[in-house]
Computed example of a mutant assay.
Amino acid sequence: LLRALLRLPFDGAAVFSLEDDHPRLRVALGDLSEDPALAERLAQSPTYLHPEGRPLVRPLDTPTEPLERWAKAEGYAEIWALPLFALDRQLGVLLAFARERIELFSEDRSFLETVAAELEVVLESARRFEEVVRARAELADAYEKTLWGWAKAVELRDQETAGHTERVTALAEALGRALGLSPLELADLRRGAILHDVGKLAIPDVILRKPGELSDAEWSELKKHPIYAYEWLKNIPYLQRAIDVPHYHHERWNGSGYPEGLKGEAIPLLARIFAVADVYDALTSDRPYRKAWPREQALRYLETHAGELFDPRVVAAFLRLAEVQTV
């Protein structure tokens, strides 16, 4: 639209939106640069911020406002300003600059008005789109905070894993990036990692916090926590892809895991990725029944059991990751 406007005898043009009555430069063409300071000059120039007239035309013989002083110093002779409205609400301003005094004939003024009207539609559409994007971002943030609330509830009950969720989530994300996951897959991996142990909320304290060795019956009950997680989360559309992590992260490559004894690539990829990060963090963290393993010993364990307990491709990526960053 601005390129079309420059068919008229203007040397530069700029469009600004108004956000809380402060101008934001959207685009500048012609011999204008997209200088953020241009918006500040407009903000300090009320005659142009809220122009009275359609268009307002001001020669720069005796500049009084910051925008006029700047324009005159840049060699412009005249500023044309049009307020941009939608439903009686000012959305922005169109400014056009000319290095010589100009006179527009009626058809040119009509064309200028048409361009301004089209810009009003564009700005209103952009405003609505940005509101939707902002609302979605706020909703996603609220969802994530809710997920972290559930994770904290697990850690408050299972005190031996305090801090585990933050560490293993960051580690799983780094491993996912190393494996080339898409942004959508990484987001699902992150949500699943945050919720990986949420099923433990259904496990009785006498089992979850038992200081000694679990009986066979107790161990069987503890191994149900991935099933509990699945039952809780399966009807939440937002988590349909992420649910693979809490449901299957205890499955093992050779089929010896639980809850379903899945084998090889039948185990969802996100669960295979998370399993490596989860076991590594568990081995390198202090537990009541043992001290943390040294980093090198934990890495050797993963390497030894690649192709047996863990996806060998995922382990190889983890070992490469460990060479270039602290894990």
Rank of each mutant, 00 (worst) to 15 (best):
N254W: 05
Y280F: 15
L201P: 08
T284Q: 11
P259E: 03
D205E: 14
F310Q: 06
K223Y: 11
K224N: 15
Y228E: 06
E173A: 07
A217L: 13
E74Q: 14
V198S: 05
T165Q: 00
V198R: 00
L95R: 07
L171Y: 01
E40Q: 09
H22S: 11
I267N: 12
V279T: 05
F318E: 00
G75F: 01
L6C: 11
R295P: 04
Y230K: 15
I236G: 08
K200R: 05
K263F: 10
E107N: 10
P226T: 06
R313K: 14
D88Q: 07
A322L: 02
R7S: 12
P46M: 00
A117K: 13
T169I: 03
A178V: 00
K263P: 07
D20P: 01
Q297N: 11
L67V: 05
R136C: 07
G261K: 03
S33V: 13
P288K: 09
S182W: 03
V245M: 07
L56A: 02
D216F: 14
E78F: 10
L32C: 08
L147Y: 15
A86W: 14
R99W: 02
W219D: 15
Y289I: 07
A170H: 02
E160L: 03
V27K: 15
L156R: 15
P259M: 01
A174E: 04
E221Q: 13
Q325P: 01
F310S: 13
L32T: 06
